[in-house]
Design a protein around this nucleic acid. Structure first.
Length: 667
RNA sequence: GCCGCUGUAGCUCAGUGGUAGAGCGCACCCUUGGUAAGGGUGAGGUCGAGUGUUCAACUCACUCCAGCGGCACCA
């Protein structure tokens, strides 16, 4: 007699052999109707399976996040059934639930087309209408392998072969269709909400390994209700509107072109944003005790051999022969045996050269060496993506050389800086992760133990909660990952922090300790923004192009209503410029509506409208971006100059100007 | 790099086996208009590149290039 405990703490005895469905019915008919699966002590269980013993239970419906996963899993199954029905000879593989939906990988020689989606979706709806019960069976392992092999389902057979020997092999029937599956499933296909949609088609390697066959992956989204599906589709549209590539074109920030794929042409407006960011972070680093340096773009391949990059990452480096190209049309342009140089893919080896140039004492440490270093990486063509994945990038990079006993304090110092910077950008939703040792790595386990412990201690000291990302560290040391959530809930990684014991060793960096002996410094690789390219991409999408005033390419446009106000407009603009603002003047022979529209589309924070009245009164009609409909405030020019100059201050400068008093008052 | 899709004017996109169209933008003219598109005229295209099929290719086929969505990669 299983004793079942309900979420409210009450418990009740049920007859042996009772199923989840019967339990649900004993509570209420409507619950039984809505029930999808039952949770037993935290594990999900088919409603039609006997409950084996005492358990804390919860009936899962579509309204439950776990229920939504069941729905998505079941939709993946009926997708597979529909596809095999419509395209005989297609092999099924796996079809997991992912964020917002699911995918299914199929093996088929002919390519699928998105044109097939309508047909497949119709078939899926028919399977739901048929209301096939999902029926679980447990099979003997060899029988299952034979069965799927006989069906020509090589991938399924392989999956079973690779299951741990003690794992129960279960299959589920849904009407005429049968599939290997761990389950659980809802009682029948008829309970699946018709709130799904096939989204896209893509290639994916079998088991994620590029040496394996390429399968065809269908992505879909599925929800508990049609309204949820609609909402999701609208959200996708919203995200598309924020696409930094699109906004970059609309706001004339930058462009990319085939002759320099992966490298950005920054236009004046876009580079204005860059300059603000660079000036900002430079102030922050100066304040935090960094020394800025500049190191060579090209270094001899020998340097990269010594650093270890040549053997491991040569395929991602741009290599240049160290030879004068020949003007002779007949012969080769460069000698075949020319020495090789490489464009730097990172700044750290060069920074070690500065460290090594002269004798260093323990008194010099920590040495925080910063560089806005322009690096090149020969990223594969398929990886390039707007500003987010480029071949030429500039990092707000720095390397901190320190003693082992300084690692925790330096890490904490960086974490404080990091949080403060992102706070200035109004991005306070940050998840921290400690990425630990990967399978292939340099350095011994004792060193890794110490390194991971140091980072954990620093996170604790900074009062930060964090998760582990096991095996995600760099090959030379553990990393901290910073996952930011943007205005519409997407997560991004920009900055980085890595602990490195290996490179100082390889490039023989040392300092003289208090004991008069030579010691190895520890090296901390760190970047707050990451790369300017990626960070600007992130900012564009986070703000949907509407930058805060201090970053906006143009901060205020003075737009005239009639040409009688032209002279005054120029005077007002000059005043604003003198106050340090980025000002444009629009004297065109256009209606004010048209001017407002155009500058609003460019997301200029302020439009200062001047007509005859403003010109006579020495005023401006100020219109702030982002407020729907007519919004204006007539203000004396002098007041506007003062107020906008204040609003346009970078956050750190404003903080310094007003001291900590305002900050404290704000808390 | 792999799989799929796409490539037509500065931008967004129609279009057909018989050598191209719209809207916006741009230029010029009229309009001086009070908070998200005033009107007119005009310029602008080797239809991504190459090869092939055809009397004829922007259209069909193949190859290449690039972009997009994934996968793999990401020091």
């Amino acid at each position: 007699m299983p004793k079942l405990t309900f979420p409210d703490g009450a418990s009740r005895d049920y007859p042996a052999g009772v199923t989840g469905l019967e339990v649900a019915e004993s509570i209420s008919k409507s619950l039984a109707k809505k029930a999808l699966v039952i949770e037993l002590d935290g594990a999900l269980w088919d409603l039609k399976r006997e409950i084996p013993g005492d358990a804390a239970i919860r009936i899962i419906t579509a309204a439950d996040p776990a229920g939504l996963e069941i729905i998505r899993h079941d939709v993946a199954h009926i997708l597979a059934q529909a596809v095999q029905d419509l395209f005989p000879g297609t092999q099924v593989t796996i079809g997991p639930v992912i964020e917002n939906g699911f995918y299914y990988d199929f093996a088929r020689d002919e390519p699928f087309s998105t044109d097939d989606f309508a047909k497949i979706e119709a078939k899926m709806a028919a399977i739901i209408d048929a209301d096939h019960p999902f029926e679980r069976e447990e099979w003997e392992r060899e029988k299952a392998i034979m069965f799927f092999r006989d069906m020509g389902e090589e991938y399924k057979a392989q999956i079973i072969e690779d299951l741990p020997v003690d794992e129960v092999v279960s299959v589920y029937r849904q009407g005429p269709w049968i599939d290997l599956c761990r389950g659980p499933h809802m009682p029948s296909t008829g309970k699946i909400p018709k709130a799904f949609k096939l989204m896209k088609l893509a290639g994916a390697y079998w088991r994620g390994d590029h040496r394996n066959a390429m399968l065809q992956r269908m992505y879909g989204t599925a929800w508990a209700t049609k309204a949820d599906l609609e909402k999701h589709l609208v959200q996708i549209e919203e995200a598309e509107k924020r696409d930094h590539r699109k906004i970059g074109r609309q706001m004339d920030l930058f462009h990319l072109q085939p002759e320099a794929q992966g490298s950005v042409f920054w236009h004046p407006a876009g580079f204005t944003v860059w300059r603000q960011l660079e000036a900002y972070i430079r102030r922050r680093l100066d304040e935090d005790g960094y020394d800025e340096v500049k190191t060579p773009q090209l270094m001899d391949s020998g340097m990269w051999e010594r650093s270890g990059h040549w053997s491991k990452f040569r395929d991602g480096m741009f290599v240049v022969p160290d030879d004068i190209p020949s003007l002779d049309d007949d012969g080769p342009i460069v000698r075949a045996d020319a020495d090789l140089l490489a464009l730097k893919p990172m700044n750290c080896p060069a920074h070690i050269q500065i460290f090594n140039n002269g004798q260093r004492s323990y008194r010099d440490l920590p040495w925080r060496m910063a560089e806005f270093g322009c690096c090149h990486r020969n990223e594969s063509h398929g990886a390039l993506h707007g500003l987010l994945r480029v071949r030429q990038m500039t990092q707000d990079d720095a390397h901190i050389f320190c003693r082992e006993d300084q690692v925790v304090a330096e890490t904490k110092k960086f974490l404080d800086l990091f949080a403060s910077v992102y706070d200035d950008f109004n991005m306070t939703d940050i998840d921290y992760k400690l990425a630990t040792r990967p399978e292939t790595r340099a350095g011994d386990d004792a060193t890794w133990d110490r390194a991971e412990k140091n980072l954990a201690a620093a996170l604790d000291a900074a009062g930060l909660k964090y998760d582990l990302a096991a095996g995600e560290g760099a090959f030379y040391g553990p990393k901290l990952e910073f996952h930011l959530t943007d205005a519409i809930g997407r997560t991004w990684q920009a900055g980085t922090f890595q602990l490195d014991y290996v490179l100082p060793e390889r490039l023989d960096a040392s300092y003289v300790g208090a004991d008069g002996e030579k010691h190895r410094p520890v090296m901390l690789h760190r970047a707050v923004f990451g790369t300017f390219e990626r960070f600007i991409g992130l900012l564009i999408e986070h703000h949907a192009g509407a930058f805060p005033t201090w970053l906006a390419p143009t901060q205020v446009v003075v737009a005239t209503i009639t040409s009688d106000a032209d002279d005054y407009a120029e005077t007002a603009a000059a005043r604003l410029r003198d106050a340090g603002l980025r000002v444009a003047v629009d004297l065109r022979n256009e209606k004010i509506n048209y001017k407002i529209r155009e500058h609003s589309e460019r997301k200029v924070p302020w439009i200062a409208v001047v007509g005859r009245q403003e010109a006579e009164n020495g005023a401006l009609a100020m219109r702030r971006f982002g407020i729907e409909g007519r919004n204006q405030e007539i203000k004396p020019l002098n007041d506007v100059v003062t107020e906008l100059a204040e609003e346009a201050l970078p956050p750190d400068v404003r903080r310094a100007k007003h001291g900590d008093a305002t900050a404290a008052a704000a808390e």
